[in-house]
Amino acid sequence: MFQKARSADDGLGSPARRKLLQAGALLIALVSTHSRIAFSRDEADPHLGQSLQQLARRLFPHDQLPDEPYGEIASSLVSRASTDSKLAGILRAGVAQLDKGGLKPWMNRDEASQLAAINRIMGSEFFRLVRSACIEHLYRNKEVWQLLGYQGSSVEFGGYVDRGFDDIDWLPTRSKAK
């Protein structure tokens, strides 16, 4: 949540948005897309969104999860970038960096080469930005909470006073608060 507060100052006006849309239109003309990855958003640059979605899954792979939560991370980044040219630049350059040096675009490579490419960008601004977005979206997602065993809101159930706040049973000696 602190990452979110930090980025709140980054908002830019609509000229940036127009620029990005133009850039996106140019890209769409250049990049051919034939991906299996679901990316339903009406988006000017499918390659960017699809790469980000795949990156999100590689960063935090939970095999039980469908594509939707990962797609949401990508679409939220792309949508923020549509009003933030600095962010748009970082995202585009980051994906270009991943794509660099291979015969195929990064997202169409095998898992091992995808991971190797991520290792090369680890710690970069792009990496930290996508990682933060992943954490913010994935781990606020109720479907993911279920997977983790996090029970979330409790007030409507009367809290945890009768629902296991002190039910630990594996400690060597039972202890009691004084």
């Binding site: 960063l59 935090f60 792979p61 991520i118 990496f127 994935l138 606020r140």
Partner: peptide, 14 residues
């Protein structure tokens, strides 16, 4: 969960 994922390792992933 969100804080745990952020703090365990500053650049943790995979």
């Amino acid at each position: 969960p969100e804080r745990l994922a952020s703090v365990l390792e500053p650049n943790g992933w995979g």
